[in-house]
């Protein structure tokens, strides 16, 4: 009888332990990959876009300060990428097209940042723009020439970039929504264009 009791208690404790372990390990069943966990943390933490100097395809240099008063939607790419980046940018272009024209440039600016400053000089970026019909003004493409500054941005926004053996990078991808004050407000799934553009349009409408 006693034995039976012990066994039952052990089973209950096991179940509780397992559920507790899964719960802790997945932030309460919300994040099953490190990537989701990272996004959730970012959305919670709302880091400020650091003071870094951008150099865009028209060879202009500026900081995020110049976008003060406008929302910025950001992606991170490198132009030599043949796999995820083109898809990311294509989807980015679709989001761009789905935003009412009156908002573009006034309420929101699109910004593609390259994390490969060595190869992605303004000339390369200008070339790259043409594939996605980016105008270089309301949708800018820029690099961060200073490696240290670049690293501070990637760290702040949780972008993980690992060089691979073929001169490329493995990296995680998303749309980053930075608000008018320069704080990261949301990280959007780049594969779900509809949801992303609905979020952005809704967000802009609320502000007006």
């Amino acid at each position: 009888m006693m034995k039976n009791w012990c066994n039952r208690i052990a089973i209950t404790v096991s179940i509780i332990l397992v559920v507790w372990m899964w719960f802790i390990g997945t932030d309460g069943f919300t994040a099953f990959t490190a990537e989701t966990a990272r996004k959730n943390n970012l959305i919670e933490a709302k880091p400020k876009f650091p003071e870094v100097i951008l150099e865009d395809s028209k060879e202009r240099t500026y900081t995020m300060e110049s976008f003060r008063g406008k929302n910025v939607l950001i992606t991170f790419v490198y132009t030599a990428c043949t796999t995820v980046c083109p898809e990311l940018e294509r989807n980015f272009a679709e989001v761009y097209q789905s935003i009412p024209a009156s908002y573009i440039g006034e309420e929101i600016v699109f910004l593609t940042i390259s994390f490969d400053p060595e190869r992605d000089d303004p000339k390369t970026l200008e070339n790259y723009q043409q594939y996605f019909q980016s105008d270089g003004e309301t949708w800018r493409m820029a690099r961060i020439p200073d490696q240290l500054q670049l690293k501070s941005l990637l760290d702040a926004f949780g972008v993980i970039v690992i060089p691979d053996e073929y001169d490329g990078f493995s990296h995680n991808s998303a749309f980053y929504f930075v608000n008018k004050l320069g704080y990261l407000e949301n990280v959007l799934d780049y594969t779900d264009i509809k949801a992303a553009s609905e979020y952005v349009v809704g967000r802009l409408e609320r502000e007006i």
């Binding site: 099953f32 990959t33 989701t36 799934d189 594969t191 779900d192």
Partner: peptide, 13 residues
């Protein structure tokens, strides 16, 4: 299970 995973996390295709 595959459908469940995809429903929970649509970026897993």
């Amino acid at each position: 299970m595959m459908n469940i995973i995809h429903t929970v996390n649509p970026s897993f295709t």
